[in-house]
């Protein structure tokens, strides 16, 4: 029997650009053309001022570690060891959930406010997940 798989996102029309971006190696956010507010998760209007005039842009991929847990039990399907579920504060302002790759999953290694950078985890041909890892340099 195959290993139970990690939960997969089911893409909706309003989020297609985000997931296409991940596959192309870009973290895509949206910004309001009227009030300049950058936001996440995706939606075709500005959650701050209600304007439908919004644009997709490529984020810098830089962020910092805002908070996290190290989940020990129960482990979600597709995870075999304790893993950090983190919230990353992006340079552009929005926050998003991520795992922290290429880093020991320990309180000592995971320091709040540490610098992170985006990386892209290929789950399979159809799904690439934006992820974060400690910033290099």
């Amino acid at each position: 029997m195959a290993e139970p798989a990690r939960a997969r996102p089911k893409i909706t029309p309003e989020t297609q650009h985000y997931w296409d971006g991940a596959k192309a190696g870009e973290l895509r956010l949206q910004r309001c053309d009227s009030c300049d507010h950058a936001y996440f998760p995706p939606r075709p209007f500005c959650p701050k001022c209600g304007s439908r005039g919004v644009s997709v842009f490529k984020a810098s991929g830089k962020g910092t570690l805002y908070s996290y847990v190290i989940n020990h039990r129960p482990l979600a399907p597709g995870f075999t060891e304790p893993y950090a579920i983190a919230v990353v504060e992006l340079e552009e302002g929005p926050r998003m959930m991520s795992n922290i790759l290429d880093c020991p999953q320990t309180p000592e290694a995971l320091e709040l406010d540490m610098k992170l950078e985006v990386t892209f985890q290929t789950i399979d041909d159809n799904l690439t997940l934006p992820q974060f890892r400690p910033a290099k340099g």
Binding site: A7, P9, T15, P41, S67, N71, I85, S98, L129
Partner: peptide
């Protein structure tokens, strides 16, 4: 899986309240 939570949180391994509620602590 097509909710915002299903798309933008579930793939990172949230699995029941203990994996989510303490995230701000």
């Amino acid at each position: 899986a097509d909710s915002l939570q299903g798309q933008f949180e579930a793939p990172y391994g949230i699995y029941g309240p203990p994996s989510q509620f303490p995230i701000p602590v």
